[in-house]
Nucleic acid binder design. Structure first.
Lengths: 149, 149
DNA sequence: CGGTATCCTTTGGGATACTG
DNA sequence: CAGTATCCCAAAGGATACCG
């Protein structure tokens, strides 16, 4: 009986896959789903979403301090793109010195849930991946040194 | 009572976030989780995982046909990286002409589940994002033309 | 403080040609 | 068929300087 349940879960995955891949004809490189996945294809976006999800509301420089290694330019670009996609909101207070606050929107929070799952997977399987890499590299070195003899 | 449930779910998210962000000190740019998320930061990896999950086993050129727009070089690079991370297996049949089959490993399948969730989100919210972009661009055009007057 | 503008280097990745 | 090797270009992104 367990087998049936497993099979059903597999079927659900297959159905979802076909929905994603076959959506509006994946053949066209302009497929929206691909377009959107491209946006998450940069680490700064994902990290920004994580930190905003974690802190709630953050000012520009607060965010910059938390995202290790990001340049001012890239943080600006990243936040603009996320705002453009409706994932974060940007509130400017007309004060001197200026204050700008960023926060996840409802849409952004719904994405956060999914991205957290991915982050948790990475956190949970990091060791396994690092180990696989070490093994691969070791094999690689062996075959290379064998060729040199 | 509903509020309590919602709060608990929020708490769970917060706990997971802290687990991800605070894992081994996110401060170091070499944090494994970030390192691994970087790997998914290219669209070809995600698309390869989708298509292998969908088809099960695929040969090099079968995969190339399905991933629209990918070059031979990038498919090779992508598959090598995924293999190195232990996400896919590569079986070479010593025949002429050669035959090479790619398949998701157990680890790869466990990742597939998470990536499908992300893909489904993108598929479901694509319209919303496109709409947000259009609105943002329209506002942008207005403020620009206002500056020119 | 929260940016923008500019420059300049590095990387990603396509095109093409060749090979076991 | 399934790559590798080379060349080359476009884009990403860091560093720096300046600004409201």
């Amino acid at each position: 009986m367990d087998i049936t349940i497993v099979d059903n879960q597999q079927d659900i995955l297959q159905i979802k896959l076909k929905k994603i891949l076959g959506d509006p004809a994946n053949l066209t490189g302009t497929c929206p789903t691909r377009n959107i996945l491209d946006r998450f294809s940069d680490k700064w976006s994902i990290l920004s979403i994580f930190h905003l999800g974690n802190a709630g509301i953050l000012r520009f420089n607060e965010l910059k301090k938390r995202i290790d290694g990001i340049s001012q330019r890239m943080l600006t670009v990243t936040l603009r793109n996320l705002e453009r996609d409706g994932l974060i909101s940007r509130r400017v207070y007309p004060e001197i010195p200026p204050r700008v606050e960023y926060e996840l929107t409802g849409l952004g929070n719904s994405l956060l849930v999914k991205v957290i799952e991915l982050g948790e997977w990475a956190s949970d399987h990091g060791d396994q991946i690092m180990q696989a890499r070490a093994q691969y590299d070791a094999r690689e070195r062996n075959t290379l040194s064998a060729l040199n003899n």
